[in-house]
Simulated assay, not measured.
Amino acid sequence: MRGVVSSLFTLAAAVALFGATAATAQDFVQQGTTIDGLRLPGLSTYAPPSSSAPLAQQGLGEVKLTALMTEDGKEITRGIVWRVFSPQAGEDGKLPLVASAQGGSSTFHLEPGSYLVHASFGRAGATKRITVGANSKTETVVLDAGGMKLDAILAGGMRIPNGKLSFSIYEAETDANGDRALIAPQVKPNTVVRLKSGTYHVVSTYGDVNAVIRSDIIVEAGKLTEATVEHRAAEVTLKLVREKGGEAIADTSWVVLSDAGDIVRESVGAFSSLVLAEGDYAVVAKNRDKIYQRDFTVVAGRNQDVEVLISEAETDPAAD
Score class of each variant (00 low, 15 high):
residue 293 Q to K: 13
residue 210 N to M: 14
residue 309 L to T: 00
residue 8 L to Y: 05
residue 227 A to H: 11
residue 194 R to G: 06
residue 298 V to R: 00
residue 112 P to C: 08
residue 196 K to C: 02
residue 63 V to R: 03
residue 285 A to C: 10
residue 194 R to Q: 06
residue 72 D to V: 08
residue 296 F to E: 06
residue 61 G to F: 05
residue 214 R to S: 15
residue 166 S to R: 11
residue 269 G to M: 12
residue 308 V to G: 04
residue 122 G to T: 00
residue 169 I to K: 09
residue 197 S to C: 07
residue 113 G to E: 05
residue 208 D to T: 01
residue 15 V to W: 09
residue 97 L to N: 10
residue 202 V to A: 03
residue 46 Y to C: 15
residue 37 G to S: 01
residue 88 Q to C: 14
residue 264 V to P: 03
residue 30 Q to A: 09
residue 250 A to R: 10
residue 130 I to P: 14
residue 187 V to T: 02
residue 32 G to F: 04
residue 124 A to T: 03
residue 233 A to L: 07
residue 191 T to I: 02
residue 246 G to F: 04
residue 155 A to P: 06
residue 249 I to N: 02
residue 197 S to E: 14
residue 67 A to L: 04
residue 296 F to Q: 07
residue 210 N to W: 03
residue 100 S to W: 11
residue 10 T to G: 08
residue 118 H to A: 14
residue 66 T to E: 10
residue 258 S to A: 06
residue 213 I to K: 12
residue 74 K to G: 12
residue 312 E to G: 11
residue 166 S to N: 10
residue 205 T to V: 09
residue 203 V to S: 11
residue 257 L to A: 06
residue 259 D to P: 02
residue 241 V to A: 03
residue 194 R to F: 05
residue 25 A to R: 04
residue 144 D to L: 05
residue 18 F to L: 09
residue 305 D to L: 05
residue 150 L to S: 05
residue 124 A to Y: 00
residue 116 L to F: 14
residue 165 L to C: 09
residue 90 G to E: 06
residue 97 L to K: 10
residue 48 P to Y: 01
residue 49 P to C: 05
residue 319 A to T: 13
residue 25 A to N: 01
residue 24 T to A: 14
residue 301 G to Y: 02
residue 20 A to P: 07
residue 119 A to L: 00
residue 178 G to Y: 01
residue 101 A to M: 04
residue 281 Y to L: 03
residue 175 D to P: 06
residue 225 T to Y: 00
residue 133 G to F: 01
residue 11 L to G: 08
residue 212 V to M: 04
residue 200 Y to R: 00
residue 92 D to E: 08
residue 206 Y to K: 06
residue 139 E to A: 09
residue 159 R to E: 13
residue 304 Q to A: 07
residue 138 T to M: 09
residue 193 V to R: 04
residue 35 I to L: 15
residue 138 T to D: 01
residue 27 D to P: 09
residue 187 V to F: 06
residue 17 L to E: 14
residue 64 K to N: 02
residue 229 V to S: 13
residue 48 P to Q: 11
residue 93 G to H: 00
residue 307 E to Q: 05
residue 236 V to Y: 00
residue 241 V to M: 04
residue 72 D to Q: 11
residue 112 P to Y: 03
residue 105 S to N: 05
residue 129 R to Q: 13
residue 290 K to F: 15
residue 51 S to M: 04
residue 262 D to Q: 07
residue 113 G to V: 10
residue 196 K to M: 08
residue 146 G to A: 08
residue 11 L to C: 07
residue 72 D to A: 12
residue 165 L to Q: 08
residue 165 L to W: 08
residue 249 I to H: 02
residue 163 G to E: 15
residue 2 R to K: 15
residue 238 L to E: 12
residue 242 R to W: 12
residue 305 D to E: 10
residue 187 V to Y: 03
residue 54 P to Y: 13
residue 170 Y to D: 12
residue 207 G to Y: 00
residue 165 L to G: 14
residue 14 A to Q: 10
residue 251 D to L: 01
residue 104 G to C: 04
residue 214 R to N: 15
residue 93 G to N: 08
residue 202 V to S: 06
residue 125 G to H: 00
residue 78 R to H: 11
residue 180 R to T: 05
residue 88 Q to S: 12
residue 237 T to C: 09
residue 170 Y to G: 12
residue 242 R to T: 14
residue 98 V to M: 04
residue 230 E to C: 13
residue 161 P to F: 05
residue 124 A to P: 02
residue 116 L to V: 13
residue 243 E to T: 07
residue 309 L to M: 07
residue 63 V to G: 10
residue 136 S to M: 00
residue 73 G to K: 02
residue 22 A to H: 07
residue 220 E to D: 14
residue 194 R to L: 14
